[in-house]
Design a protein around this nucleic acid. Structure first.
Length: 271
DNA sequence: AGATGTCCCTGGAAGC
DNA sequence: TGCTTCCAGGGACATC
């Protein structure tokens, strides 16, 4: 389940190699979440300029427009000169002079969407409501606290919504809240300035740590070189229901928020 | 506007 | 053993 660290690790694993390459062919497999939005032939002959990331979206700038790639929850990208034949879950492939970029996505929550430019309506619809990047200076503790004060929903769900800060998915939301000692059910607006600052730091720490370690493999993540991350052993609460808290040994508890599993330690995390 | 629920999809695990 | 059911999750969308 790719969250920000996994998407960034994926980007780093092929961005340099694909930059400057010319697009030779484009193929789509089964439909993904949204249609590509242009003819596959439209990009042939164009050049890939660079690969950026915004939230969990990868942005491929090409001379023929922007390609937005989202890995959904089961997607992974492969990039290389000699990939195996297309499998039943390979739903997008772009052949370039530097190698082929391929999206493998069994559950097809992922997407590849073309937009003429970033300011085009299609791109704005996907990127327009995204919050700040957590690993940049734009993510400021005081601004974060002020934004939280306007929200009455549970802090976990506010983090997942992605309109205040991007890239915090279900796993890292639970992990960051544990690190900050905050119960996931606390209303965002009720967090004091110090607690918001603690959460701000925790989000950065958790994401930076996962990024440094090459992304999480809690399910089956691998980067575009086929290498997997190894963060799963570091999870303090995620997927540890009933197991002893690594800090205080109290059993980790689980609940559902917005149809999603949340894990927390009732002793370490205060309401 | 913000909060909440629903839906998309498939493979693996759990239940009968 | 073989069926059915449940669950995982990002995020757009609909509905209050």
């Amino acid at each position: 389940m790719p969250e920000l660290p996994e998407v960034e690790v994926t980007r780093l694993s092929f961005a340099d190699r694909i930059a400057g390459a010319k697009i030779i062919a484009l193929q789509m497999g089964k439909p993904l979440r949204w249609p590509l939005g242009c003819e596959t032939s439209q990009l042939v002959g164009h050049t890939v300029l660079q690969v950026r990331r915004r939230g969990k979206y990868l942005l491929l700038d090409t001379t023929g427009g922007l390609l937005l790639i989202h890995l959904g929850m089961s997607g992974s990208l492969g990039f290389g000169g000699e990939l195996p034949p297309l499998g039943k879950h390979d739903h997008f492939e772009m052949q370039t002079t530097a190698g082929s970029l391929r999206l493998h996505d069994p559950r097809r929550f992922g997407a590849v969407v073309h937009a003429p430019t970033e300011s085009d309506a299609v791109a704005r619809k996907l990127l327009g409501r995204l919050g700040v990047e957590p690993l940049t200076d734009a993510f400021d503790a005081l601004v974060f606290h002020r934004a939280l004060q306007r929200r009455q929903a549970a802090i976990k769900q506010v983090l997942l919504a992605g309109d205040i800060v991007v890239g915090v998915g279900n796993i890292y939301a639970s992990e960051a809240l544990f690190m900050a000692g905050i119960r996931p059910t606390v209303r965002a607006a009720r967090l004091s300035k110090p607690r918001a600052a603690k959460l701000h730091a925790a989000i950065r720490a958790v994401l930076a740590q996962a990024l440094a370690k090459g992304g999480s493999t809690l399910k089956d993540f691998s980067n575009a070189k086929g290498e997997s991350g190894y963060f799963q052993l570091d999870a303090m609460v995620y997927d540890r229901a009933g197991l002893p808290c690594k800090v205080c040994a109290a059993p980790i508890r689980t609940l559902r928020q917005g149809q999603r599993a949340t894990f927390f330690c009732a002793k370490c995390q205060k309401p």
